[in-house]
């Protein structure tokens, strides 16, 4: 009897997960218009970055930051902002031999 309850519990969890997955696919379809709207904003306002971290210019616009940011005050100065620690160094810094000038 207990095994029937267990199998029922596992099956209901699997069904719930499948329902959430189907719900995700439907939501992606329904919100595709929102993505189109965002694409228009990016295209027409010529945006380059997401507006997530507004604490420093190199966290607000990580793609437009100076080449030596976050060491903006002096070489080897420590990083000031918590958001900076979320961003990993770019690949070309890790393998510095492949640094390109642009």
């Amino acid at each position: 009897m207990k095994y029937k309850i267990f199998i029922g519990l596992i099956l209901s969890e699997i069904l719930l997960i499948l329902a959430l997955y189907v719900f995700s696919q439907m939501l992606i379809e329904r919100r595709s218009i929102e993505i189109t709207a965002k694409k228009i904003l990016v295209r027409e306002l010529m945006l380059t970055d997401l507006s997530i971290w507004t604490e420093a210019r190199y966290t607000r616009h990580p793609s437009q930051a100076d080449l030596f940011t976050p060491f903006q005050d002096f070489p080897s100065s420590v990083e000031h902002f918590p958001a900076g620690s979320i961003i990993a160094p770019p690949e070309n810094i890790k393998t510095w031999k492949s640094i390109k000038r642009y």
């Binding site: 997955y21 719900f23 995700s24 939501l27 992606i28 919100r31 929102e34 993505i35 507006s51 997530i52 971290w53 507004t54 604490e55 966290t59 902002f81 918590p82 958001a83 979320i86």
Partner: peptide, 19 residues
């Protein structure tokens, strides 16, 4: 709270469920 850092203006996450 971890992701927000020191940002005063932080957008609410209305994430699209890409899995």
């Amino acid at each position: 709270p971890v992701l927000r850092g020191w940002s005063v203006l932080f957008p609410p996450f209305r994430l699209i469920p890409y899995v």
